[in-house]
């Protein structure tokens, strides 16, 4: 396989998996928040904290990809 093709495939894989990782990050944050709420009986404080962290984690993925994409 040529070197250029390998590099292109690598970038393709990275940017193609961006969308699903944003969505999953938000749901994982929400799920962890809900689970901790049930555990410590602090409805609904930790849910919002977890949701916020999930959203921040998802968007940090986008920002990181944007920084990476500047090289093109």
């Amino acid at each position: 396989m040529k070197k250029e093709t390998g590099k292109n495939l690598r970038e393709l894989g990275y940017f193609a998996s961006l969308g699903i990782s944003v969505a999953l990050s938000i749901f994982i944050g929400l799920g962890v928040g809900l689970w901790l709420d049930k555990k410590f009986d602090t409805n609904p404080v930790l849910m919002f904290v977890g949701l916020g962290l999930g959203i921040v984690a998802g968007f940090s993925n986008i920002i990181r990809a944007g920084k990476k994409g500047k090289n093109y």
Partner: peptide, 14 residues
Amino acid sequence: LPIELIAHTARVMS
């Protein structure tokens, strides 16, 4: 730390 942990869990899930 929690943000990175969530991002790495998202890798497994995706």
